[in-house]
């Protein structure tokens, strides 16, 4: 479904050029859920924006369904860290925003919008304004907005990272259920090892700048998965341990020490 072939991306800044991604190759199957995990500044968001067509690669190519991505497409939708709901529009109207932006008929999609809101438990809130909702509810509305156009590809950029821990878990659980129902191919960028293991078929670990694929780990745990007591406790903890090692490992620390002598490596500080 998504083919990322030899993609690199360099940004030109006033202080010179910054290499964000180097030679990334990734094949994502139809309906697959891939989590991308890595330290801050490892190019996770850049990768997502490349797939979304918001920026173009310096080298290489991104293909969705066999066609190269040049600009944003209507069968690809994106969800951000902030809900970015329009404060003057009701919940239902926010969900229908993509429909209006595409110039499609609202009446044809209102039913689906209500159904999506129902799925995330916001039926009673559809005529409320965003500021009357909690952060978790707002992000649920943003999820419905991302799903309204029935996207084949869903790109999520740390969508739950601005929420409190319990709400995050709740929303991750809901996302799992929705993904099982709707089967959109999903790339989910996150900082959270837990979220990655709960949700993904495969976890892509990116190394620090410039972002390269360090390892791809298969999560072969049957669904539905849960954060709480699970029958697959051993597998879960072994994958979590692997990811911890990859993200905090010795080699990266030595790089960090070399780059900033006299400072404790980032991994040890936190």
């Amino acid at each position: 479904m998504i083919k990322i072939v030899g993609v690199s991306r360099t940004f030109q800044t006033r202080k010179g050029s910054v290499e964000a991604l180097r030679n990334v190759d990734l094949d994502i199957g139809d309906g697959e859920f891939v989590a991308v995990i890595g330290r801050s500044g490892c190019g996770k968001s850049t990768l997502l924006r490349l797939v979304a067509g918001l920026i173009s690669p310096t080298a290489g190519e991104v293909l969705i369904g066999g066609t190269p991505v040049g600009k944003p497409r209507r069968d690809v939708s994106m969800m951000f860290q902030q809900p970015a709901l329009l404060p003057w529009r009701s919940v239902l109207d926010n969900v229908l925003l993509p429909i209006e932006m595409f110039g499609w008929r609202r009446s044809r999609h209102a039913e689906r919008a209500r159904h999506l809101l129902d799925m995330v438990g916001l039926t009673d809130f559809q005529s409320r304004l965003p500021h009357e909702l909690s952060g978790g509810m707002q992000q649920r509305v943003a999820l419905c907005r991302a799903l309204i156009q029935q996207p084949r590809v869903l790109l999520m950029d740390e969508p739950f990272s601005a929420l409190d821990a319990l709400t995050r878990e709740e929303l991750a659980g809901e996302l799992q259920r929705i993904h099982t129902d709707l089967k959109a191919t999903t790339i989910f960028v996150t900082h959270s090892i837990q979220e990655a293991v709960l949700l993904a078929d495969r976890v892509v670990v990116l190394s620090a700048r410039p972002g390269r694929i360090r390892k791809i780990i298969d999560v072969a745990i049957p669904r539905p998965r849960s954060f709480s007591r699970s029958t697959h406790l051993a597998e879960v903890s072994s994958i979590v341990a692997d990811l911890h090692e990859l993200l905090l490992d010795i080699e990266d620390n030595r790089d960090a020490l070399a780059a900033a002598p006299g400072r404790a490596p980032a991994g040890l500080r936190s």
Partner: peptide, 29 residues
């Protein structure tokens, strides 16, 4: 107009007119 809305509008590849009347103008009110 907040950058979040700009990025959202771009990801929806919305036309200039639609962004203007559905996002920028209401935000300016």
């Amino acid at each position: 107009t907040p950058a979040d809305f700009g990025e959202l509008a771009r990801s929806l590849s919305a036309s200039w007119w639609r962004v203007y009347f559905k996002v920028r103008l209401p935000w300016a009110l």
